[in-house]
């Protein structure tokens, strides 16, 4: 149970025959932060989707926080996802709701009392430095700010694992560095973080472990 993520000989073949992951075995230790790199189509997104239970492996075993994902029934998927913080390249914010409501959504889903929701949403917005913007609509924010809202929404449920798929893909280098520093800070508070990115320069500056994928194979570094 020391590993938060454990892939054991995982194969993912999509309907149609495309082999996205080929016998991938890897681990992410509890409290660790690592980057998942590789060219586009290397299998980064597939790996993230397997952890988020958006896809199921063709063969092999995925264990997250001690939970064998093969044993998570379709009906239990929502509850599982509530404890994994997902962050997306396109932010996936809801544009008809305020920043506050966007961040509150995971707590509303869990049915928390209004008082607790307010407290925790404010704390999350404070963490990403957007407390002053809680009443604004996402459309009025810059790309970097929108991604911060996305991150606040991912951490508001206190996940044991943060999973970010190309979080800086739509941002310029300065903003990207800001977002990465934010991940570092979150990791320092004990959350395990896995970030898929093709921004090799940024990854090399930061000096965390790199997990490299190439055409579905794990490359040893």
């Amino acid at each position: 149970m020391t590993d938060i993520v454990a892939f054991d000989n995982v194969v993912k073949r999509y309907p149609g025959g495309k082999l996205a992951l080929d016998r991938v075995s890897l681990t992410l230790a509890r409290g660790e932060m690592a980057f998942l790199t590789g060219h586009s189509g290397a299998g980064k997104s597939t790996l993230m989707k397997l952890i988020g239970l958006i896809e199921r492996p063709t063969r092999g075993r995925v264990v997250i926080n001690g939970i064998d994902l093969a044993r998570v029934h379709r009906r239990q998927v929502p509850r599982y996802r509530q404890r994994v913080g997902l962050i997306f390249q396109n932010y996936n914010l809801l544009f008809d709701r305020t920043v506050f409501d966007n961040v509150a959504l995971p707590l509303v889903i869990r049915g928390l009392a209004h008082r607790d929701i307010t407290r925790r949403v404010r704390a999350a917005l404070d963490t990403v430095g957007l407390l002053a913007h809680e009443k604004k609509f996402p459309i009025t924010l810059s790309g970097g700010e929108q991604q911060r809202v996305g991150i606040a929404r991912a951490v508001v449920n206190r996940p044991y694992l943060l999973l970010a798929d190309e979080p800086t893909g739509n941002l310029d280098p300065d903003l990207s560095a800001d977002i990465m520093r934010l991940f570092t800070r979150l990791n320092e508070t004990g959350t395990s973080v896995m970030i898929a990115t093709h921004d090799i320069d940024l990854v090399q500056q930061m000096g965390y472990r790199r997990i490299m994928l190439d055409h579905g194979h794990l490359e040893t570094h």
Binding site: G52, I54, R75, V77, P78, R79, Y80, R81, Q82, R83, V84, L86, F88, N92, L93, L94, L105, P106, I109, R110, R153, N157
Partner: peptide, 16 residues
């Protein structure tokens, strides 16, 4: 559609 997808990703059960 997009909103529903996001909610499912955030762990919203069907009932919600």
């Amino acid at each position: 559609r997009q909103e529903i997808e996001v909610m499912k990703l955030l762990g919203a059960p069907d009932a919600f």
